[in-house]
Nucleic acid binder design. Structure first.
Lengths: 170, 170
DNA sequence: TATTAATATTCTAAGCTTGAAATAAATCGC
DNA sequence: GCGATTTATTTCAAGCTTAGAATATTAATA
């Protein structure tokens, strides 16, 4: 989580050079993102548990399926959520057991399964989503809309570049 | 991870009212933070695994201990890392087994244990930290210093307020 | 058509994470 | 000093997460 200064190896004549200072600023950006992210995530987990007896990964799956009118197959689902393939299997298993989603065999590909919300799942998700938006709004209540727009733009750029990087790596 | 619009319940005469728009902007801020955070975290995990055969939680513990000259007891450690008490026990167990840290009984409190880096642990951590800063710098390479400062300030404010909230709740 | 390669999913082992319960020791109130 | 409460830590059960192996099926190609 926290980290230390180790960047005096660029060999400038004295003290910190520009590259090192920039590097440190970026490191601090990351540490702040991480801190905020963990604080919010922790609170969301807690509230989902206490008020709805569920978990964040379950919510994430339901949200992804709610947005996908026709459902998603397992690969698409793990892609959207950015988690491993095998991971989704377990969460889906439990949601199926709770009758919130169903696995439907794909007509012309016997390997694949499409996962979809049930009516019960949809109703359930809408309750969760209402709470979720309220909680986030409450936690970020101090953020003015103008600041929010700026953060959205900045973080959007960063995210986009990270996505591109990843695409290139492969 | 992703979420949906459910905030048309504030009863404005037509369309979205100001509160609802603000709420949605904040929700998007959160979703962007979450996305960036997960992308970066995933890459850091991957690199720590491939290049150093270790994990992010282990790195976090080592970093916290590196910053604490005299070590930390288990409660302080879980406090700094913002994870549960029991969680730290397991990670510390494994780091102790690898001789990277030691548990030292506290003289005047037989319940407590202080955890400290060994010389080996310190050396190991410095290698990790060097890689870590480089990777972050690379991933956020596109962020100009002026933007970085702004993000640091904004996210710092958000983090501070969330900390305060938490303190008040208790 | 027969192989080979690619794709979709699940399974497995190991570690992470949590909240709650269990221990053990210190401290507080009397 | 003694009982009750608080504090420090570990243990436990359940679920999350990952990478990699195993299965099954489809697609490509020779």
């Amino acid at each position: 989580m926290s980290v230390v200064s180790t960047n005096s190896r660029k060999g400038a004549a004295s003290g910190l050079d520009a590259a090192s200072a920039a590097s440190k600023a970026r490191l601090r950006v990351w540490l702040r993102i991480l801190k905020v992210s963990r604080l919010i995530e922790r609170e969301l987990r807690e509230r989902l548990r206490v008020e709805f007896d569920t978990t964040l990964p379950r919510f994430d799956v339901l949200a992804a399926l709610y947005r996908a009118e026709k459902g998603l197959n397992m690969s698409e689902l793990s892609g959207v959520l950015r988690v491993s393939n095998g991971n989704v299997t377990g969460i889906v298993d439990r949601l199926v057991a709770d009758r919130l989603i169903v696995r439907v065999p794909v007509e012309d590909d016997r390997r694949a399964m499409i996962v979809r919300l049930t009516a019960k799942g949809k109703t359930h998700f809408l309750e969760l989503a209402r709470g979720h938006e309220d909680w986030v709004n409450e936690m970020l209540g101090s953020v003015e809309t103008s600041d929010a727009e700026m953060l959205i733009a900045q973080l959007g750029d960063i995210g986009k570049r990270l996505d591109q990087r990843k695409a290139i790596d492969k």
